[in-house]
Amino acid sequence: MFVEGVSLSDENVELILRDLIDLYGYDFTNYSRASIKRRILRLMSNDRFLSFAEFRYRLKNDPEYFKRFVEQITVNVTEMFRDVQFYKTLREVVLPVLATKPIIRIWHAGCSTGEEVYSMAILLAETNLLDKSLLYATDINPAVLEKVRAGIFPLAQMKQYSENYIASGGKKDFSSYYTAQYNAAKFDETLGKKIVLATHNLVSDGSFNEFQLILCRNVMIYFDKPLQDRALRLFYESLEMLGYLALGSKETLKFTDISAMFRQVENREKIWKKVM
């Protein structure tokens, strides 16, 4: 790999992954090796470790550094209203069905810093559903959940998000949802009040509720096939009959164990309804 000044063999990666299981109970062995190796290298380089031995020693003996490892190794890139057709479909196809329920429970699995959770809260507010909704936002990385709680995102992104919002069928002035403070956009607290935060590890944790809609977008691309199947089984078990499962634009239920139990929405967006 081309990261300047550090090297990392496949055996080194296996050692690290083994240490994490033994010492911290975190199992990354079913993560895509190419991605995780690159991210470990990036971390070693950013934190200026001179050797693998030094890096491994620190990780094994410093629980604070382990926290940093989890924060840095997981991918926390996300946007508001990314994939406008997807959000249009949520607005026009999925929410009208959910509107008929007395209470709406939505799970954002692998929510990262929460941009998608706030996008969903805006959709719910605009369809007058927010009051009867609960948005469960979970991630393996506790540090990102603090950001979800704060509801503060970089102001520089707002122009792009506003365009996404309009293109996905939003009718309001997007800036009415936040207050600008220096370089940050602080989202309206009424949007955050129905968000429930918890750490949850798709590798090891189980179902914790029954939902009408589960979103897990651009999370499972980092998993190998057996872990993808585990996560999908968990989502299946956590969905109400006729509930919806939403995946990222390059993810699919095709060729998975649970595909027979779901039917994709008609416009072929990456949203499936549990039918069995």
């Binding site: 895509s32 190419a34 991605s35 991918v75 890139v77 651009n218 691309i221 980092y222 990222g248 390059k250």
Partner: peptide, 9 residues
């Protein structure tokens, strides 16, 4: 020899 898609930075 499989492809992994990655949505990192």
């Amino acid at each position: 020899k499989t492809i992994t898609l990655d949505f990192s930075e």
